[in-house]
Amino acid sequence: METVILVIWVFWPIDRIMRVSLRTITLDVPPQDVITKDSVSVKLNAVIYFRVVDPSRAIVEVENYLYATSQLAQTTLRSVLGETEMDELLANRDKINAILRQIIDKRSEDWGIEVSAVEVKDVDLPPEMKRAIARQAEAERERRAKVINAEGELQASEKLAQAAHIIGAEPAAIQLRYLQTVTEIASENNSTTIFPIPLDLFRGFLGSVAQQAAAQPPRLTAKASGEPLPAAPAKTKTEA
């Protein structure tokens, strides 16, 4: 096994050695005051994850690649968010992070730097804007509650219409429902409740009594004075 000895010639003071880390570097972007597209003033900060892929270019092409990357991130952050509305900033943060990463990575490519991710950390809104967002959220919740209530009433009315149609086809079902309601009221309340009983409950009984009365022949009764009624004349046979 051969041993390889690496010798680096340094001509001082012409040459000097500079160490460059090839690991991923985390760089905090200080808070920036930004005015969004819809004229809302916000303060936000971000964090950048990048690494040096070409050490020679990172040293030769730029004086201080850390400071240059930080300044580039700040200006790009203000530029991109200045063209974004506040609602989009709050709702589509992943999309904004992707745009920031793409722009910073493209501009820092000449410095031998590769940007892996850019994340917007905190978005500080003014107090009046926070109150407006809270009122908007409350109004949205009230709207959803009213819509749900209206849908429930619509479904209930449809079911009631179906029940009325079914009960209307069967008259006896109305009476059964009436008796069930009376039973429920009697079980829940201890007070005395008077309900009129509909004649429809006795319609079947009255009909049977009327049929029996019509089937029997009429009978003669005694006079009020007590005298017997005259006997019916007997029928006689006539000879042909």
Score class of each variant (00 low, 15 high):
M1E: 04
V7G: 04
F11H: 11
R16A: 01
I17A: 07
R19A: 11
L22K: 15
T26K: 07
V29W: 03
D33T: 08
S39N: 14
S39G: 00
N45E: 02
N45A: 02
I48C: 10
Y49Q: 07
F50I: 02
V53G: 01
P55T: 06
I59W: 03
I59S: 08
V62Y: 12
L66M: 10
L66Q: 11
Y67C: 00
A68H: 12
Q71E: 14
V80Q: 15
E83C: 12
E83N: 15
E85T: 15
M86W: 15
A91S: 10
I96Q: 14
Q102V: 00
S108Y: 00
W111I: 01
G112Y: 08
V115Q: 03
V115E: 02
S116M: 11
S116W: 09
A117S: 12
D124G: 03
P127Y: 07
I133Q: 12
E142Y: 06
I148M: 13
E151L: 10
E158L: 14
L160N: 13
I166M: 08
A172E: 11
L176S: 08
R177I: 02
E188V: 02
S191L: 00
T192C: 00
P196D: 15
I197R: 15
D200S: 10
G207I: 02
V209C: 08
Q212Y: 10
A215P: 05
P217I: 09
L220C: 06
A224L: 11
A224T: 14
E227Y: 05
E227C: 01
P233W: 07
A234W: 09
A234V: 10
K235Q: 09
T236R: 13
E239V: 03
E239F: 04
